[in-house]
Measured scan of single mutants.
Amino acid sequence: SEIVKHAEEALERGEFVRIEHNGRVIEIRNEEALEELRRWVEK
């Protein structure tokens, strides 16, 4: 997914991403959060 790709690229640069999706906000700061995002987006 485009969202996950964006988050992965930001993590590689040492940045973090805040994503709003279906009214929820998730902050991607590490691999664990990235995995959570993947599960969340796939639903």
Rank of each mutant, 00 (worst) to 15 (best):
S1M: 13
S1H: 13
E2I: 10
E2L: 13
E2H: 10
E2G: 09
I3E: 03
I3W: 12
I3T: 06
I3F: 07
V4K: 01
V4W: 11
V4P: 02
V4G: 02
V4H: 03
K5L: 07
K5T: 07
K5I: 06
H6Q: 14
H6I: 15
H6S: 10
H6E: 11
A7E: 01
A7S: 03
A7V: 09
A7P: 01
A7G: 02
E8I: 13
E8M: 15
E8N: 06
E9G: 07
E9Y: 07
E9D: 11
A10M: 11
A10T: 04
L11W: 08
L11T: 01
L11E: 01
L11Y: 08
E12W: 12
E12K: 15
E12R: 15
R13A: 06
R13K: 09
G14W: 02
G14M: 04
G14D: 04
G14Q: 05
E15H: 08
E15Y: 07
E15R: 06
E15G: 08
E15D: 10
F16Q: 07
F16W: 13
F16Y: 12
F16S: 09
V17Q: 05
V17I: 14
R18C: 12
R18L: 13
R18I: 15
R18F: 12
R18G: 03
R18P: 02
R18D: 04
I19V: 13
I19Q: 01
I19P: 00
I19E: 01
I19H: 03
I19T: 03
E20D: 07
E20Y: 14
E20C: 13
H21R: 06
H21G: 01
H21Y: 15
H21L: 15
H21N: 05
N22W: 11
N22P: 01
N22H: 13
N22D: 10
G23Y: 04
G23K: 02
G23P: 00
G23A: 01
R24T: 09
R24A: 08
V25W: 12
V25I: 13
V25P: 03
V25L: 09
V25E: 06
V25K: 04
I26G: 00
I26T: 04
I26L: 10
E27N: 06
E27T: 09
I28M: 02
I28Y: 01
I28D: 00
I28F: 02
I28E: 00
R29L: 13
R29D: 12
R29Y: 12
R29N: 14
R29V: 15
N30C: 08
N30R: 02
N30H: 06
N30I: 02
E31Q: 15
E31I: 14
E32C: 06
E32N: 08
E32L: 10
A33C: 07
A33V: 05
A33D: 15
L34C: 02
L34A: 01
L34F: 02
L34G: 00
L34K: 00
E35N: 10
E35Y: 05
E35L: 07
E36N: 07
E36I: 10
L37Q: 00
L37H: 00
L37D: 01
R38N: 03
R38C: 03
R39Y: 10
R39W: 10
R39D: 10
R39I: 12
R39F: 09
R39P: 01
R39Q: 14
W40G: 03
W40Y: 07
W40K: 03
V41S: 04
V41H: 04
V41A: 06
V41R: 02
V41E: 03
V41K: 02
V41I: 13
V41M: 11
E42D: 10
E42Q: 11
E42F: 10
E42T: 10
E42G: 09
K43D: 12
